[in-house]
Each structure stands twice: as C-alpha cells, then as structure tokens.
C-alpha cells in the first residue's frame, strides 16, 4: 500500500492553470454554439456531457484532486455517489407513479 501522502504539497504551475482555463473557455463557447444547432434530445445530452467534462477539469486540476491522496479522491466520489442515489431513488417514484394510469 502506497503512502497517501506520496505527493506532499504538489505545486501545480501556471502553465497547467492556463491550459485548463483556456480549455474551459473553449468548452463554454462550444456548448453555447452547439445549443444553437437542433439535435433533439441530444442537445441536453451534449450540453450535460460538456458540463461534466468542465466540472471534471476543475475538480482534477484547479482543485488538485489529480495530485491528491486516494482518500480525497474517494471523498469526491462518495459525494457524487450519494447525489446519484438521491436522484435515482427519487426518480423510481416519479417515473413509475403514473404506470397503469394512461
């Protein structure tokens, strides 16, 4: 088992920040541009996919999770997992409430 403190105080440099910031701006432009193209349901899919990519870039680089211990990685994962539990278990009610009533 590796030491979780294997990367003590990894300093992320301005080059990485610039690259990530630039990518984020590009993706923002892309998601707005794509919203003007008619894609049906895929408008939502693409927009959310881009949002997820942007959020992951922020978490991994701006928030240093890429360089952090497994514990922190797991913590982030636990947060999203519980959020998914909330969404999916609530949806079990909402998607099936009207079954048989149509």
């Amino acid at each position: 088992m590796s030491e979780p403190t294997a990367n003590p105080h990894h300093v992320v440099g301005p080059k990485v920040y610039l690259a990530i910031g630039g990518t984020l701006l590009l993706l923002t432009g892309a998601t707005t541009a794509i919203s003007f193209v008619e894609l049906g349901v895929f408008n939502a899919v693409v927009a959310l996919a881009i949002a997820v990519i942007k959020a992951m870039l922020v978490v991994l680089f701006f928030m240093h999770i890429r360089y952090s211990s497994k514990l922190l990685k797991l913590t982030v994962a636990a947060g999203f997992f519980t959020f998914l539990v909330l969404i999916s278990m609530v949806m079990t009610d909402y998607i099936s409430r009207a079954w048989g009533l149509w």
């Binding site: 278990m89 079990t92 009610d93 009207a98 079954w99």
Partner: peptide, 11 residues
C-alpha cells in the same frame, strides 16, 4: 402518501 406502488415495492 400516494407514491408510486412500484417504487414503494422497491423501497
């Protein structure tokens, strides 16, 4: 409370 029966079954 009027939740879906199917969902109630799961829970």
């Amino acid at each position: 409370m009027g939740v879906s029966n199917y969902s109630a079954l799961v829970f």
